[in-house]
Amino acid sequence: MDPYALKKLNQCRRERRAAILITDLGDGRDRVVVEGDTVAGTLGEAVAAAFRSGKSGTAEIDGRTFFLNVYLPAPRLVIIGAVHISQALAPMAAAAGFDVHIIDPRTAFASPERFADVRLDAEWPEEALSRSPLDAWCALAALTHDPKIDDPALKAALEGGCFYVGALGSRKTHAKRVERLMEAGVSRTAIDSIHAPIGLSIGAASPAEIAVAVLAEVIAALRSRGTEAEKGRAA
């Protein structure tokens, strides 16, 4: 592999840009294509298809075999609330490959002592999210139980097209949340896509077990993006 290709590829991955490493398996030459770059001819069609599907694979073009390795941005998990569940969830999600970002304006909760080795912003979600906007590669879990903090973040997550939006709280709590979000002008379809009560139903009891249930639900949503199962659930 060309050292410049590796540097460019890693740079794209740090900047959350989709990229493909194209290797000619005949002579070993390679180059990096960033999403949006123009690639001519049949190879260009294969590149466009690979960006759409996200799947890596070989392509036979004009008697040559190319390997197209697709690198999509790492999914990001934004956690609203520097609470006990978050202390267990953050390291688990990081181990599973997520970029973790915790937001909580309450400085007593959002202290570096309680959250080492994780991106932590002790400010209101609107402020923190204006610097790191949510996108389709983001999941958001609202865990504070405080509507002042959770609601604006949930609204931003639904507007940003996050692949997963979950909110902690009982069915009763959620019913009140639904009313508030409706009043705030969020559509019923969007509200119905919120996972609440949060987490897969595994009978989780402790904060760490709830974290497992939440992470499993986030992974299930990530891996079923665009499939019938996910569409059926959201409908």
């Binding site: 590796l6 181990a95 490959g97 080795d117």
Partner: peptide, 19 residues
């Protein structure tokens, strides 16, 4: 925010460090 919160054992990042 370079790969913060992610494991530092990403093979291609490790390859770049080794290089």
């Amino acid at each position: 925010q370079i790969a913060q919160g992610r494991p530092s054992n990403d093979p291609l990042m490790v390859a770049e460090e080794w290089m």
